[in-house]
């Protein structure tokens, strides 16, 4: 076991796959010589050389187009979009081209590619460098959407994403980069579409993603002291969505809370909740509850940003409403 940061896990995950498969290439802005603006990719350029780890111009359409075209012609490329907000500058390539190519050609085109990006708030970067945009990607048929909550999962899910024959949007939550975990040595490979139990419990099911997972677990520990036993599910991917794990948990707890970092409207929690109410309504003993960031752009000031994003304290207060209901 080694103490590994979420940041280091990104580099280790990419290295694991590049060492295994010579078809894996990695491109992006400042990712090679500079090691990435978040220092997630340090050492890759030196280890794998300037052909396989290559800096690009600030050209998000060229970057995403490049990995699409390369995936059509024999590579299994990884691109980095520095901040997930920048997906807005290349959404045509991602949503109109990458997501639809296979369906429109009735399976002639296969796109084994990964687009990684630093997603989400908590870093005081303001509204254009802090968005949690997982729902944009989730809403487009043809994209897989992955968002790990801890260093071990970064490696395992990144490996699964690189090995998938479908395009994957891989969202790293930037406020987690400094978080640490003991991670086993050796190859780690997960499967997409498998949620995990971050904490077992019997009273309330709390479904969370990425940075909301550690906050939900922290809230659960506080609630345990107050006699509420919370089960926390780490979804890990939105597409595929592991409803089996969610429905099994709700059958046990009869209560559902989702914790989303994204702004309120059309968040993934609405989809999870609607499936639970359609398929497990009679398992429920209380109204479902969605905890989200308000439907606002994210502010920069630390006090305002902290107020906007669901905190463990907010989660505790909100869960108590459901637990007592």
């Amino acid at each position: 076991m080694a103490d590994l940061t979420y940041r280091q896990a990104v580099g280790r995950g990419i290295a694991q796959e590049m060492a295994r498969d010579p078809r894996v290439y990695f491109i992006g802005e400042d990712i090679a010589a500079a090691g990435g603006v978040f220092k997630t990719t340090e050492g890759l350029h030196e280890r794998f050389g300037p052909d396989r780890v290559r800096d690009t111009p600030i050209s998000e359409e060229a970057i995403t187009g490049a990995v699409m075209g390369a995936a059509m012609n024999g590579l299994r490329p990884i691109a980095e979009i520095m901040f997930s907000d920048f997906f807005a500058t290349c959404w045509d390539i991602v949503a109109n081209q990458i997501a639809k190519a296979r369906y429109m050609t009735d399976g002639q085109i296969t796109l084994p590619l990964v687009i990684r990006s630093a997603n989400g708030g908590g870093a005081r970067f303001g509204a254009q460098h802090s968005q949690a945009m997982e729902n944009w990607a989730m809403a487009v048929p043809g994209l897989k959407v992955v968002a790990p909550s801890n260093p071990r999962d970064v490696i395992g899910l990144l490996a699964a994403s690189v090995r998938a024959d479908d395009p994957v949007i891989f969202l790293e939550q930037k406020s987690l980069y400094a978080s640490k975990q003991d991670v086993p040595e050796g190859e780690i490979v997960d499967e997409l579409g498998k949620a995990t139990l971050a904490r077992e419990g019997s009273d309330v099911t709390v479904v969370a993603l990425a940075a909301m997972v550690p906050r939900a677990v922290e809230a659960a520990e506080i609630l345990a002291g107050r006699g509420v036993d919370v089960e926390v599910i780490d979804l890990r991917s939105l597409v595929p969505l592991d409803m089996t794990t969610v429905l099994r948990s709700v059958a046990k707890t009869s209560r559902l809370v989702t914790v989303e970092e994204n702004p309120r409207l059309c968040g993934w929690g609405a989809e999870v909740t609607s499936i639970v109410t359609e398929e497990a309504f009679y398992d429920l003993d209380a109204p479902t509850l969605r905890i989200t960031t308000p439907h606002i752009p994210l502010p920069s000031a630390d006090t305002l940003e902290d107020l906007a994003m669901p905190s463990s304290a907010t989660i505790v207060t909100q869960i108590q409403r459901v637990a007592n209901g």
Partner: peptide, 29 residues
Amino acid sequence: VAVGAMGSYAIVGAHLPIATGAAWAAQAR
């Protein structure tokens, strides 16, 4: 795809970066 006709793209200009990527793979391989 079998004859190298890699697609007709209906968003003006979008396929130029994609074609560039296919050329990158040709160079890399």
